[in-house]
């Protein structure tokens, strides 16, 4: 029998903003007029998933087949990033979405994702972006691996070896390289140094438009109310605020030469030089 190896890529939809603005009255993100995108680090996870599939297929081992599945937990409109992932070479997508999941902290998110992943037969490699643009915690990956009881290697820089049973992972730390050999299943998180995300293909885009993306709610995942959403969360955000800027910051852009002359004239204007 041919074994099906499944690579799971976890992705999240985030607002496409350089600077997040928060409504001071409601403590929530101001989302009006802001486009939603795939969390930038997750685009590297998608690309790595697609590349690992190609590498496993290149082994020409007829005893297994490989599929890359993207999973996103979020509101119904997150289906758009799953379609985008398919246009980039992902085979299929799953949306984990239910009102009961609203307000999940990183633990509840990881727990919910673990429930969804367990529904997928043959999952062997889980890839996540190292952190999100909005939450910025980087905790879901390690928590997910902990719940699934599998090894987790964060900030992977390179997968130097891959086979049906193990991966060799290199990562760059501040002062050294570390190399790990892990047995599969395992989870990794990736950053910008692992690859250059690809360009969508025309066939991928066409496939993504018609792809059926199942929505898995709690009825399917079967968690107890106290395990998910706000009730399943150990942490609660009490207050979010935009720090007050006591000093005005001027950001310069352009070529280094342009920036130097701009800063020079500014300093001159302020009589500092």
């Amino acid at each position: 029998m041919i074994e099906k190896i499944r690579i799971i890529v976890c992705i999240k939809q985030v607002p496409a903003v350089m600077e997040i603005k928060i409504n001071p009255e409601t403590n929530t993100l101001i989302r009006e007029g802001i486009e939603n995108i795939i969390n930038p680090f997750d685009t590297y996870a998608i690309e790595e998933g697609v590349r690992l599939k190609a590498r496993l297929i290149a082994l020409k081992d007829n005893s297994f087949d490989v599929e890359v599945i993207a999973i996103s937990m979020g509101p119904p409109q997150s289906v758009e990033i799953l379609r985008e992932a398919i246009s980039l070479g992902i085979d299929s997508g799953v949306l984990v979405s239910d009102r009961a999941f609203a307000g999940s902290d990183t633990w509840a998110t990881a727990y919910t994702l673990s429930k969804a992943i367990k529904k997928i037969e043959g999952w062997k490699i889980i890839i996540l972006g190292k952190q999100t643009l909005d939450g910025d915690t980087g905790q879901v990956g390690p928590e997910l691996a902990h719940i699934l009881n599998i090894p987790f290697i964060g900030y992977a820089s390179k997968i130097t070896e891959i086979s049906r049973n193990k991966m060799v992972i290199k990562r760059l730390m501040e002062d050294r390289y570390e190399t790990f050999e892990v047995r599969l299943p395992a989870a990794i998180s990736v950053g910008k140094d692992i690859n250059i995300p690809g360009i969508p293909s025309l066939r991928g885009k066409m496939k993504s438009r018609s792809a059926e993306i199942p929505v898995w709610g709690n009825e399917y995942l079967g968690m107890e109310a106290k395990e998910c959403g706000l009730n399943g969360s150990y942490t609660q955000v009490i207050k979010i605020f935009t720090p007050e800027h006591k000093h005005e910051t001027l950001m310069l852009s352009g070529t280094p030469d342009e920036q130097v002359s701009e800063i020079y004239s500014k300093l001159k204007e302020l009589n500092l030089i």
Partner: peptide
């Protein structure tokens, strides 16, 4: 058509990014 728009989008991405 949708397909033609996709061709344009893909090419623009290649032009901008690469």
């Amino acid at each position: 058509t949708e397909e033609q728009k996709m061709i344009v989008e893909i090419c623009r991405k290649i032009v901008e990014d690469r």
